[in-house]
């Protein structure tokens, strides 16, 4: 264990802990922008710089491990100047299109700009036109909004192990591009971690403001993994799927289906009532009618050919409990062991 002080407060943490983690453990807030709990520290934003007594150079709290006896200062005029300059430099050419940005209202850059009271930027640099080189039909990239915090690049590499995107070019002209576009699975990990509106979900664009939606926690139905997600609901329509960091087995990750495959919910083509084919045509029926019909047909088959003539196949999209009940039904009610599950195939 290592003992240090942060803003005069004594903290004892295990060796290898970063200054940022140590500060958080005692509820001292150090502002961060590129830092993300699920990623190795990136260190691109420099918002978390702190001063360490006896060392001339400020250091990033997210990447610096603690050391015994150090005295860390997280707030000073110098640090505020650096943090403000870091934000001001981003704002040199960041578009102020917050009113039409999907991220408006839950944007980290917005929050920090507000927190540090930046109402004007005295720095100027000509704008470099960046091309949108990274996009899929589901993910939209807004190069002008990108602050190049590299969360997306890091998440693609570290969480998904794909490495489809990377930084290309030097200096001011550097930008995030799809270096290996074919590898991209449109899983949306990148937009999940994006702190600004640089990466957005293209299906939900202009459908609803973030502060107006209800977020309904639920379990993804696409497979048996049980990923936790939140349906973003506005006016009884699902307009997006988001996740919460650290929740469920998926810790905030989803696959392309879980994140983007929600449009069927409100689809006009979706069946909402049972149909029974009469005279070669499907006709709407009540649930009782439909279930009675199925029960009678099953019973007839069982009577005539024995229970072995029936078999049941369930879906991986059902829950464990539903699958359990189904095999119970097949075995106890129908009387057959002919039961299987598509995930086994």
């Amino acid at each position: 264990m290592v003992t240090l002080t942060i803003d005069g407060k004594e903290v004892t943490v295990p060796q290898g802990t970063t200054i940022l983690e140590a500060a958080r453990s005692v509820d001292i807030r150090i502002p961060t922008l590129c830092y993300h709990d699920r990623l190795n520290p990136i260190g691109s934003c420099r918002m978390c710089v702190v001063e360490i007594e006896g060392y001339t150079h400020p250091m990033a709290a997210c990447t610096t491990p603690v050391d015994d006896g150090i005295e860390v200062v997280t707030k000073s005029d110098r640090l505020t100047r650096i943090r403000q300059d870091s934000l001001k430099l981003i704002l040199v050419n960041h578009p102020l299109d917050c009113p039409v940005c999907d991220k408006g209202g839950e944007c980290l850059l917005q929050d920090l700009t507000y927190e540090f009271g930046i109402d004007q930027v005295e720095y100027k640099a000509a704008k470099v036109e960046r091309e949108s080189q990274y996009a899929t039909p589901l993910i939209r990239y807004w190069p002008d909004r990108c602050i190049m915090c590299l969360r997306c690049v890091t998440a693609c590499q570290e969480i998904k192990g794909i490495g489809a995107i990377s930084i290309q070019g030097d200096g001011y002209g550097a930008q995030v591009v799809a270096v290996d576009a074919e590898k991209c699975q449109s899983c949306g990990e990148c937009l999940q971690v994006c702190p600004t509106g640089a990466l957005t979900e293209d299906l939900s664009r202009y459908k609803g403001r973030t502060w107006l939606v209800d977020r309904v926690p639920t379990t993804c139905t696409y497979c048996g993994c049980g990923c936790q997600l939140e349906l973003n609901v506005q006016n009884d329509r699902v307009i997006a799927v988001t996740t919460r960091e650290g929740v469920g087995v998926n810790h905030g990750s989803l696959c392309v289906k879980g994140r983007f495959g929600y449009e069927f919910i409100n689809s006009d083509e979706r069946l909402t009532k049972p149909l029974i084919k009469k005279n070669g045509k499907f006709e709407e029926a009540s649930w009782d009618e439909a279930l009675d019909l199925v029960a009678s047909k099953f019973s007839a088959i069982k009577e005539e050919h024995g229970p072995g003539a029936l078999a049941g196949l369930t879906s991986a999209r059902c829950t464990n409990e539903e699958n359990y009940l189904f095999q119970k039904f097949m075995r106890a009610a129908v009387g057959t062991n002919n039961v299987d599950h598509c995930a086994r195939l």
Binding site: S44, C45, R46, S86, L89, A125, I167, Y172, Q175
Partner: peptide
Amino acid sequence: VQNKSCGKCFLCRIGTRVMAET
């Protein structure tokens, strides 16, 4: 310096550009 800046941190990437243009 700006040309060689890797672009991986905000201050160097944009700051040296502002300095160079100034």
